[in-house]
Amino acid sequence: MDVDAYSDAHRVEWDRLEALLRRRRWTVEEADEALDLYRHVATHLSVVRSSSPDPSLVSRLSSLVARARAAVTDSSSWSWRDPLRFVTDEFPAALAASARWWVTTALCSLVAMVVTGWWVATSPGVAAAISTPEQTRRLVDQEFASYYSSNPAGSFAAQVWTNNALVAATCLITGILLLPVLWVVLQNVVNVAVVGGIMTANDRLDLFLGLIVPHGLLELTAVFVAAGAGLKLGWTWIDPGPEPRRTALARQGRVTAGMALGLAGVLAVSGLIEAFVTPSGLPTWARIGIGALAEVGFIAYVLRGRRLLRSRAGVPLADDGS
């Protein structure tokens, strides 16, 4: 099915229904019109889900149908199936749909991180400019390792989650401006690279990896996902596609809000690993193994989302990042 042609054919109905839903009260004629439009758009949603892999259009129509159903039936009842559906279907599908953005962000960031860390590790002058010999000695011998056990595990997990959630939220909220997202990612890349470079220069790469990898895999992935989603939101403002800019931004904004909720859960898991696994007495291989399992679980979760998108389309998903 030609998604653009289908959207052009029915956009007037969708926009009219959205306009009605923004009103506080309807006349009798408007109520009848809203009911008819709700039925039409529900049919359109069914057609799109069965014929098109476009997650953005599915998201927009799903939201429109849900709002119209609540307005037409005057129902605001909540079901436990709603959050369950979000966890099992909507969030993994959104992750898969935006994969091109956050995977590209992750790859570019990791390359920059390795290059910067190598530069710091092999350039004594750079390391000396960053910290004094005394500061370096404290970092290598004490501060880096003691950071992860400096507070009780429970409060440390909450502190870590709050900090990381703030970083992710900054990426998502400021995505429309693009540059703040790039700045947040750059700060994270440089911080990890500099510490890693200093630890490597002092023959403590094993300690660095043993403490950063268990939680860092999932934590950095979540940050990269947030950055990718934020950048996609900003790019929607630049290139809204066939839709009016306001409509495209509203649609992508709703998707981004859902991503924020899902990433809060991902960061909660990485925070628990950082608080309870990273500073534990487990062997290094066991701690890294737990972190690797968490990352593999996340990747499997994204692949589930990809399969959901493909099953809705009934055809192989050729482009899941537009």
Rank of each mutant, 00 (worst) to 15 (best):
D2R: 03
A5Q: 15
Y6A: 10
R16F: 03
E18D: 06
L20C: 00
R24E: 00
R25Q: 12
T27V: 00
T27P: 01
E29G: 07
A31D: 03
E33W: 00
A34M: 01
A34H: 01
D36I: 12
D36R: 09
D36W: 04
A42C: 01
A42S: 00
A42K: 01
T43I: 07
L45Q: 07
V47D: 11
S62I: 09
S62R: 07
L64Q: 01
L64G: 04
A66F: 11
A71G: 05
V72R: 02
S75K: 06
S77R: 12
W78I: 14
R81H: 13
D82A: 14
P83F: 08
L84V: 14
L84A: 14
R85T: 15
F86N: 06
F91V: 09
P92G: 05
A93C: 13
A94G: 08
A94M: 10
A96M: 11
T104P: 13
A106K: 06
L107Q: 07
C108V: 15
V111Q: 02
A112E: 06
V114F: 05
T116Y: 06
V120N: 02
T122R: 11
G125H: 14
V126E: 11
V126F: 14
A127W: 11
I130K: 05
E134I: 12
L139S: 12
D141S: 10
D141A: 14
D141E: 14
D141V: 14
D141K: 13
F144R: 09
A145G: 12
Y147R: 15
S149Y: 04
P152Y: 03
S155R: 15
F156T: 08
A157E: 10
V160C: 13
V167A: 10
A168S: 06
A169Q: 03
T170G: 15
L172A: 07
I173Q: 03
I173Y: 04
T174I: 09
L178F: 00
V181G: 05
V184Y: 09
V190C: 02
N191E: 14
V194C: 01
I198F: 02
I198H: 01
R204G: 06
R204E: 14
L205C: 08
G216A: 11
L218Y: 03
A226C: 08
A226Q: 08
G228W: 00
G230D: 00
L231G: 07
L231Y: 05
L249N: 07
A250V: 14
Q252H: 14
G253E: 08
V255T: 12
V255L: 04
A257Y: 11
G258P: 03
A260N: 08
A260V: 09
V266T: 12
V269R: 03
L272Y: 10
L272K: 08
I273A: 03
T278K: 01
T278N: 00
P279E: 00
A286D: 11
A286E: 13
A286G: 12
A286R: 12
I288E: 01
I288N: 00
I290W: 09
G291N: 05
A294N: 09
V296M: 13
G297L: 03
R307N: 12
R310W: 04
R310N: 10
R312T: 03
A313L: 11
G314Q: 01
P316F: 06
L317A: 04
